[in-house]
Computed example of a mutant assay.
Amino acid sequence: MDNTAFEKNRQCKAERMQTIEIAIISDIHANIIALEEAFDDIRKKGITQVYCLGDLVDFAPWGNEVIARIRDRGIPCILGNHDERIAYDQPIIPLAHHDSIETAHRELAIRFSKNTITDDNKKWLAELPFQLELTFKLGEQLKRILLVHASPRSNDEYVFESDPKEGLLDMLGGNKVDAIVMGHTHFSYVQHYAGVLFVNCGSVGRSKEKDRKAAYAMLTISADGISAEICKVDYPITEVANAIYESNIPDFYGDFLLLK
C-alpha cells in the first residue's frame, strides 16, 4: 500500500472511530432539585453538550430558578406547551384525560406559575424556538437530529412508544433526519422505525414512570449512526414533595411524586 492510500485508510478509520455524545433533557417542571442531580450525572459522564426540550415551569416551586439555570448555562432550549402558556398568558384549557379533581389542581398550579414567573423570564420563554435541527459532520457523513417538544407539528401532541410513527415522518416532508427526539409524555423510550431513531427522553422533574427518577437521553453520534440511552437519576423526591406541601401549589403534585 502506498503512502497516499495508507493515509486515506488511516483517516477513514479515524473518522469512523470519532463519536460525539450529547445529553437531552426535557420536562423539568420547576423541579430544580431533580435538574441539578441530572446535571451532575451528565457532568460525571463527561458530556459537555446539553439541549433542552422545554416545559421548564409548573407543578413545583422553582420555576424561576429552573429558567435561570438553563439561561445561565446557555443551554439551547425549545418551547414547551407549559412554557408557551405562561409566556403568552394563554387560557388554561381542561384536558380530556384528566378527571375533575386533577383539572382543579392543575388550574391552581398553573396560576401559581402565572403569578410568580418574572416578566423577564416570561419574555425569554416567549422567544424560544418551536424546534431545533442539529447537524453533525463526521468525516463525509452528515447526521441530522430533530428536537421537538411533543411532535413536529404541535407541542401538545402525545406520541407514545406504541403509537405508529409513519405519520411523524410524513410531517417532515422531504426533510430527512436520522433521529427525532421528543418529550412531553413523561414516558421515555428508544425505538427504531423506517431507518429513523425515535427517542422520548422522559421527564427530569415529573416522571410518570414507576420509579419517578429524573430521566434524560444520552445520544452517541458517529459516522456509522446514532444510538441512544435513557439515563435515570435518583434525587431526594421527599424533599421536593415537602417543598410543594409548603408552597401554594396543591398537595396533589407532591403526592404524585411520592406515588400516593
Rank of each mutant, 00 (worst) to 15 (best):
G46W: 12
R106M: 12
S247I: 13
I32H: 11
I42L: 13
N200A: 03
D58C: 12
C77M: 03
I249C: 10
R111K: 14
T220N: 12
S151F: 09
S100L: 08
V233S: 05
L125F: 03
S26V: 06
V181R: 00
D99M: 06
R71W: 09
G183Q: 01
T185P: 02
A150Q: 04
E209I: 07
I221K: 07
T116R: 15
L125H: 02
F130S: 05
F256G: 09
T220S: 10
I47P: 09
S113P: 11
E21Q: 14
R111Q: 12
S227D: 13
P94M: 12
Y51S: 04
F198I: 06
R43A: 12
R212G: 15
K137Y: 02
E36P: 08
P94Y: 02
A217K: 09
L53P: 03
I92N: 02
A228W: 08
K44R: 15
I226Y: 08
A217C: 07
K44A: 06
S162C: 00
D224W: 08
E37G: 09
G74R: 09
V204L: 11
L134M: 03
G183Y: 03
D72P: 04
A217F: 07
R69L: 12
Q141W: 05
F112T: 10
F252G: 10
L128M: 03
G80Y: 01
D99W: 07
S247E: 08
V159C: 09
G173W: 11
I24M: 02
L172H: 02
I101Q: 13
D89W: 05
I78T: 11
P236W: 07
R153S: 08
D89Q: 08
T4K: 14
I86Q: 04
R16W: 00
T103V: 09
A179F: 01
T19A: 03
V204F: 11
I33P: 14
G139I: 06
L258W: 13
V159K: 10
C12V: 00
F160M: 14
D83N: 09
F160C: 11
G174Q: 07
F160Y: 15
V204S: 00
K143W: 04
I86L: 06
A194M: 08
F39G: 10
I101H: 13
L197I: 01
N175K: 07
N3D: 15
T48H: 14
F136L: 01
G74L: 09
G167I: 02
D83G: 07
N81H: 04
N9I: 00
T135I: 09
E84I: 05
I86H: 02
S162D: 12
K176H: 07
E36V: 12
W124L: 05
C77Q: 03
T238M: 15
Y235K: 12
I110W: 03
R43G: 06
I117W: 11
G139K: 09
G54Q: 03
D83K: 01
P164S: 01
K137H: 07
P91M: 01
D178H: 02
D251K: 15
T116A: 03
L219Y: 12
F198C: 04
P91R: 11
A30Y: 15
G205D: 04
I32P: 07
L147W: 04
D224E: 15
L134F: 00
E239Q: 15
K176R: 04
C201Y: 00
K213Q: 15
Y51A: 01
Y193F: 13
K208C: 12
E36Y: 14
H98I: 00
G183A: 05
N155W: 06
L138I: 14
T103Y: 06
P94T: 14
I75Y: 01
G46H: 11
V50M: 02
